Computed example of a mutant assay.
Amino acid sequence: MPIQRYTDFIKAEAARLGFSFCGIAKAEFLAEEAPRLEAWLKKGYQGKMSYLENHFDKRLDPTLLVPGAKSVVSLLYNYYPKQDLATEGGLKIAKYAYGEDYHFVIKDKLKTFVDRIQEEVGEVQGRAFVDSAPVMERAWAQRAGLGWVGKNSLLLNRQMGSFFFLAELIIDLELVYDGPVKDYCGTCTACMDACPTDAIPQPFVVDGSKCISYFTIELKEQIPAEVQGKFENWIFGCDICQDVCPWNRFAKPHNEASFEPHGDLAKLSAEEWKEITTDVFQKLFRHSAVKRAKLEGLQRNIRFVLPSEEQK
Rank of each mutant, 00 (worst) to 15 (best):
F163T: 02
A257D: 12
Q125K: 15
P246H: 04
A141Y: 04
L306V: 00
A293N: 00
G263M: 13
I240K: 15
C22M: 02
C211W: 03
K182N: 10
E33D: 10
C211Y: 05
Y177Q: 07
R292Y: 01
E296Y: 09
Q142E: 11
V181W: 01
S269N: 09
L154F: 14
I276L: 11
E232Y: 13
T187M: 10
L219D: 01
P196M: 11
A27H: 01
E38P: 00
V205R: 05
F104T: 13
N233T: 01
A31H: 05
K111H: 13
A133C: 08
P203I: 13
G229V: 06
K294W: 03
I93M: 02
K182C: 10
S153D: 10
C188F: 12
G237H: 03
V176K: 13
H55N: 11
V227E: 04
E256A: 12
K220T: 06
G147E: 01
V66P: 07
E226C: 03
E33M: 07
T63E: 15
W148S: 08
A97G: 01
R300Q: 11
E88K: 15
A194R: 10
D172N: 15
I200Y: 01
L156R: 00
A225R: 09
E271K: 14
E221D: 12
I200W: 04
C241I: 13
G89V: 10
K283W: 03
E260P: 04
W140D: 12
Q242T: 11
T216P: 00
D193V: 14
G297P: 02
Q46W: 04
R286Q: 07
W273F: 05
K11L: 01
Q159G: 05
G263D: 13
E226I: 04
P35Q: 06
